[in-house]
């Protein structure tokens, strides 16, 4: 592999890893704080991508689609939490798995009803449609760089939220000790709703960003979900830092796996997970 190819793959890996982080961070927060295993989280990524597809068609530009889509996704998340997930906190993992599995079927078939089972493309906004020439034969699309930049900004924002704000304090305390938070008289129901909606919005936003690159297709949410699980397992439940590091590791493993051993590309991610399990079964960043 020559240097420009390596650089391109490295950028791809980082971009994929960062998108993964947006999905996995919501997942790990929902696990860590509410103790809910949410199989439907990948579906939110899919919902985001299809929203980008539909809204771009309506408004003519991915920008407007995203501006409209984020509040929609947030509201959708809050609604789902109120309607379904709020009833799951006290149930055991088994029932959580089952209900969220049912939700996946509903989302997938709903998608099939509304959009059919074809693959759809979404246009890159004209502003970022260009490519940067690296060598005579290799170039890199600006839009992918924009994705990475936006994700980095969001990740930074997430860390500020968790480290510096009152909501973040509750989130940190809540993932340590739920009872204590309640004892402090904090409105836990509202906090849960916000965190859940935030997770949904992050996953949907990742889907919207990815739509022009990956296009939108059936089953896209499930792929992301399972890889996000791997990220959470490696990073440790409830750890945002762990999710970030693990996302990047998985992004690298997947991208370079595809380049180096194309036939076994699908396996690279899981082999990394297997190794981490042997080394630290509770994830790299698990506290205590």
């Amino acid at each position: 592999m020559d240097l420009p190819t390596f650089l391109i793959q490295l950028l791809n890996a980082v971009q994929y890893g960062l998108l993964l982080f947006l999905v996995a961070s919501g997942l790990t927060l929902i696990f860590g704080i509410m103790g809910v295993i949410n199989l439907a989280h990948g579906a939110f990524y899919m919902v985001g991508a299809y929203m980008a597809f539909a809204l771009t068609g309506l408004t003519g530009n991915l920008f407007y689609a995203i501006l409209l889509g984020i509040p929609l996704a947030f509201a959708f998340g809050a609604l789902l939490e109120w309607l379904l997930f709020a009833h799951l906190y006290k149930r055991d993992h088994l029932e959580q798995v089952l209900l969220t599995y049912g939700l996946i079927l509903i989302f997938e078939e709903g998608r099939s009803l509304l959009f059919g089972d074809d693959v759809h493309g979404v246009d890159v906004p004209a502003l970022f449609a260009a490519s940067i020439r690296l060598t005579d034969t290799l170039s890199y699309p600006v839009y992918r760089l924009v994705i990475s930049a936006v994700c980095v900004a969001l990740a930074a924002g997430l860390f500020v939220l968790i480290r510096r704000t009152r909501l973040g304090m509750v989130i940190r305390a809540g993932s340590h000790d739920r009872d204590m938070v309640q004892a402090l008289g904090i409105d836990i129901d509202r906090t849960y709703r916000i965190v859940f909606a935030l997770g949904v919005a992050l996953a949907a936003f990742a889907g919207m960003l990815a739509a022009p690159v990956s296009s939108v297709f059936p089953g896209m949410g499930n792929q992301v979900l399972i890889v996000s699980f791997v990220v959470v397992v490696i990073g440790g439940i409830g750890s945002i830092w762990g999710a970030l590091i693990a996302s990047l590791v998985i992004g690298l493993a997947d991208t370079f796996g595809k380049v180096l051993v194309p036939e076994y590309a699908g396996l690279a991610v899981y082999l990394v997970m297997a190794m981490v399990l042997l080394w630290r079964p509770e994830g790299i960043f698990r506290r205590g």
Binding site: H93, V97, I226
Partner: peptide, 10 residues
């Protein structure tokens, strides 16, 4: 929860 996720991943 880890067990659920890891069995799925494998």
């Amino acid at each position: 929860i880890y067990f659920i996720m890891v069995t799925l991943a494998f």
